[in-house]
């Protein structure tokens, strides 16, 4: 499978404070960020800003699954946003899923109640990009990835950014997010795995999410077996650099 590189465009929506469109591994998500704006009475918090995350699925209306995704994203994003700087206000993040990977082999149902782990990195990445585009003060950026453990003739193989077919065959599926301080921000796993396997997954995911830091020594990690998987932190940086360069072009 040819790994396509992630693509993103910033400020795609003219009326929002910030917005981003991100597509990778079959997922396309558009996010808009408005904030800090005045909070309604019920959302108002005396000491910090309320982070409001809304996830809209590509088809149909959001159900319990979307509520759960919103809850996961909200608790992670409010950790990296400087919420204490904006008491009594709201930072609203709306995430619209535009497309999800299609697979002829996997039966797709419109309404599914089960947890949708592989979509979390796409949503998370888009939200971070949109927050950066809206210039919301943050204490760190974060990167996220999904990793599957696939049983391959008795031996376990770790696959980064698995396809729907891989996910179907996987014994376990893991989503991890790291902040730019290399701290584990989010970890969601399901399936059947051992502590040892989780360690392997952790190392793999850390490599994908935090690679730029280790590349600073000037050593290019060519020997990596998953060298094809993208370097998320570098991607985040280069996207913003391109944006800043084009914005300041008139100077």
């Amino acid at each position: 499978m040819a790994t396509v590189t992630p693509e993103a465009s910033l400020n795609a929506l003219p009326r929002a404070d910030g917005s981003a469109r991100y597509s990778y591994a079959g997922y396309t998500v558009t996010a808009s960020v408005n904030g800090p704006i005045e909070a309604q009475r019920r959302d108002e918090h005396a000491y910090e800003a309320h982070v409001d995350v809304i996830v809209r699925p590509s088809a149909g209306v959001g159900g319990t699954r979307e509520r759960h995704l919103e809850f996961i994203l909200q608790s992670s994003l409010s950790q990296i946003i400087l919420v204490k700087n904006f008491p009594r206000s709201v930072i609203q993040i709306v995430l619209q899923v535009e497309s999800t990977p299609e697979n002829a082999y996997v039966n797709t149902k419109l309404v599914q109640a089960s947890l949708n782990l592989p979509i979390i990195p796409a949503l998370f990445q888009t939200a971070v990009l949109a927050l950066l585009s809206a210039a919301v003060p943050m204490k760190a950026t974060a990167t996220s990835t999904v990793v599957a453990v696939v049983s391959d003739d008795g031996s376990k193989k770790i696959v980064a950014d698995p396809s729907p077919q891989d996910i179907r065959e996987a014994t376990s599926l893991h989503v991890l997010a790291f902040t730019s301080h290399d701290e584990l921000l989010l970890s969601e796993s399901e399936g059947d795995f051992t502590v040892k396997e989780w360690d392997g997954v952790y190392e793999n995911a850390q490599k994908i999410c935090c690679q730029t830091a280790s590349k600073q020594d000037g050593i290019d990690m060519v020997l990596d077996d998953d060298a094809s998987s993208p370097d998320m932190r570098h991607f985040l940086r280069s996207t913003l650099e391109t944006k800043v360069a084009s914005d300041l072009h008139w100077k």
Binding site: S76, E190, V195, W198
Partner: peptide
């Protein structure tokens, strides 16, 4: 005979890293 982990859910902070997670299992 071997402990099987069925699910890990961790969010909302950065305190629990790899070592603490292992201990918590």
């Amino acid at each position: 005979e071997e402990t099987k982990v069925k699910s890990i859910e961790k969010h909302g902070g950065t305190v629990i890293g790899r070592e603490l997670m292992r201990g918590f299992i």
